[in-house]
């Protein structure tokens, strides 16, 4: 449980739009270990999504270094970053990002077709409790169901890390709990290191560890002595 999956050294990220400069990250040092479920908590604009995108290889820091195991992500090519995402990372977004022209099963198959050791799409959908809705198109599924398809798609490749950006942000609390249950189950069953970005403080109770962010910096980093099951959480 203590081998680090991700390690960042003093990363900063500067956005420049015209004459305006926005410092999204100001020197973040963070280490994440295997099998950990970490909640990144912070207000809007605190830099948590930027950090998540950099960890997932969707964005590059302006300065500092990011390691995934022994690979320095900040030094590899675009092609290698694509391979990194393909082989090691699963993403879950606030707005699901399913391909509307593919059914639930096909959306998962989209990933299993290019992954190295994937599980069967049916198995992934079973894990999130969607066996009965596999042949439905996104437009025929509820928001919670769509998000669970997105989770199934993310875990089907057996990723080393699961990165979730406000996975419950667009859902009501009952549906959100279903989604969180799917995520904790995957973390427990497959031992996938999971990072969840949220501004919803209630969710922190399901994590092993809570990292609070503000102004582009880490303000607090603490472990939960006791974790709650998702159904015990309300907001």
């Amino acid at each position: 449980m203590d081998r680090p999956v991700f390690r960042t050294e003093g990363i900063t990220r500067l956005y420049r739009t015209g004459a305006v400069e926005v410092q999204a990250l100001r020197g973040v040092d963070l280490s994440l270990t295997e099998g950990e479920l970490v909640v990144l908590l912070g207000a809007s604009g605190s830099g948590k999504s930027t950090l998540l995108n950099i960890l997932g290889g969707l964005d590059q820091p302006t300065a500092g270094r990011v390691f995934f195991r022994d690979t320095e992500l900040t030094r590899v090519s675009d092609r290698a970053l694509t391979a990194f995402r393909r082989d090691h990372v699963g993403f879950v977004f606030q707005f699901y990002n399913l391909v509307p022209s593919l059914t639930a099963r096909e959306n998962v198959a989209l990933v299993t077709e290019i992954a190295r050791h994937p599980m069967r799409p049916e198995e992934a959908l079973e894990r999130v409790g969607l066996s009965a809705r596999m042949d439905h198109f996104p437009a025929e599924l509820s928001g919670g169901e769509q998000q669970r398809v997105a989770i199934a798609r993310a875990i089907a490749k057996r990723p080393d890390v699961l990165l979730c950006d406000e996975p419950t942000g667009a859902l009501d609390s009952a549906t959100g709990v279903q989604v969180l249950e799917a995520l904790t189950a995957v973390n427990a069953d497959l031992g996938t290191a999971t990072v969840m970005v949220t501004h919803n403080a209630a969710i922190r109770q399901i994590a092993h560890r809570v990292v609070r962010m503000g102004d582009g910096q880490i303000k607090a980093d603490e472990r939960n002595a006791t974790r709650l099951a998702p159904h015990e959480v309300t907001w």
Partner: peptide, 24 residues
Amino acid sequence: PPAFSRGWLDWAVGAFHLRQTTMM
């Protein structure tokens, strides 16, 4: 999201094992 439905094409996929991107 635009609504899609299943049709003869889905049969074709089974028959030819098309990739999902081809399906799209």
